[in-house]
């Protein structure tokens, strides 16, 4: 018998009584999701900004110190000023010295400041959200949901084949429980809510 057959046969013979799947609890809504989202982003070590429209978004991003560094990627239609064209990069290793990337998010989660990035928003290289020194994420105010349960109600897989929730910058507390921002991924994460 193959390993597959052996394991599946053992599981079939395990004699576990069928247990029905339980319902999921209905989360309690806690206040205005956009306000809560902005707070959560700060709480997880990011910077949060609310801007009324795309013009204000462009102006806001332009003012970020991180955006003044030379190697910039913008995947957001409303943010001009990218200096690196991902389509021209063959190998993600060439992004090793990328300073900052601006990426559009599909939705934001109020309870934890997470932004859902789907695979196709990342351009040709998945690494773009984790390899740069700094990250700029953009999400529409209308796309802020209350919690992760609501978020999964909106996410459709496997169409993108890839997707990631990013909640603030990369961090670690592996040395004596001291929080350090910027372990392997972005050292800063600015999140703009538009609208």
């Amino acid at each position: 018998m193959t390993a597959r057959e052996t394991i599946l046969a053992a599981l079939r013979a395990s004699g576990a009584e069928p247990v029905p799947a339980p319902p999921h609890p209905v989360p309690v809504k806690q206040g205005d999701p956009v306000a809560r989202f902005l707070e959560s982003v700060t709480a997880v070590g990011g910077q949060s900004y609310r801007v009324p429209d795309l013009a204000a978004l462009a102006a806001g991003v332009a003012k970020l110190p991180a955006w003044s560094s030379p190697r910039r990627v913008s995947l957001v239609a409303g943010i001009p000023g990218g200096t690196v064209d991902l389509e021209a990069v063959d190998d993600p290793h060439e992004l090793a010295d990328l300073d900052v990337a601006a990426i559009p998010g599909e939705l934001g989660v109020a309870e934890n400041g997470a932004v859902w990035l789907k695979g196709e928003s990342l351009g040709p290289h998945r690494a773009v959200f984790v390899i740069p020194e700094h990250l700029v994420l953009v999400v529409n105010a209308a796309d802020i949901v209350n919690d992760m349960q609501e978020a999964y109600g909106r996410i459709t897989l496997p169409r993108p084949g890839y997707g990631v929730f990013v909640s603030g910058p990369s961090k670690t507390a592996d040395i004596e429980q001291s929080l350090v921002i910027g372990a392997h991924g972005a050292r800063s994460c600015a999140v703009f809510v538009v609208g």
């Binding site: 959560s40 709480a43 997880v44 496997p158 084949g161 890839y162 997707g163 990013v166 990369s170």
Partner: peptide, 11 residues
């Protein structure tokens, strides 16, 4: 409230 990166691999 959630970890920094929650990555979904489907391809």
């Amino acid at each position: 409230p959630v970890s920094s990166y929650t990555t979904h691999f489907h391809a």
